[in-house]
Design a protein around this nucleic acid. Structure first.
Length: 125
DNA sequence: CTTCTAACA
DNA sequence: TGTTAGCA
């Protein structure tokens, strides 16, 4: 499929799909016309890229991680030693981020539980 | 009409 | 990232 269909199927913009390629996250084939041709697996890869990116992993790390994940999603065979150490660090960072989010949610819960005691001041602007 | 690269009122 | 220009 070409980029247009990828946009429809992934919800990711053309600009971003090309950017992912520039970062080595995707490597679609090229038609003699220069048009990019994506595989069915690329659709799933984009999903992974989005999740990892949202988790805060740098594109460089994602680029080296994706090839270790087999398109079926269940078997993640090939282990790249150096990468494992890197991923452990990311995992640790994420764990800390989760703790921070928990704290934020707890703070909001307290404010929400207190409930409205008065009307809000009129919005600015 | 669709895609491509390059670049920024 | 969006958007746009100028091609193919």
């Amino acid at each position: 499929m070409r980029i247009g269909e990828m946009v429809r199927r992934t919800g990711v913009s053309e600009r971003l799909l090309r950017y992912y390629e520039e970062q080595g996250l995707l490597t679609p084939e090229r038609l003699p016309s220069g048009y990019r041709v994506y595989s069915e697996a690329d659709v799933e890869t984009v999903r992974r890229i989005r999740v990892l990116l949202a988790a805060g992993l740098p594109t460089a790390t994602i680029a080296r991680t994706l090839p270790c994940i087999r398109d079926d999603g269940s078997s993640l065979a090939p282990v790249c030693t150096g990468l494992v150490a890197e991923l452990r660090q990311e995992r640790e960072r994420i764990t800390r981020a989760i703790e921070d989010l928990r704290a934020s949610r707890g703070l909001l819960d307290a404010v929400i539980e207190a409930g409205p005691q008065e009307a809000c001041a009129p919005a600015r602007r």
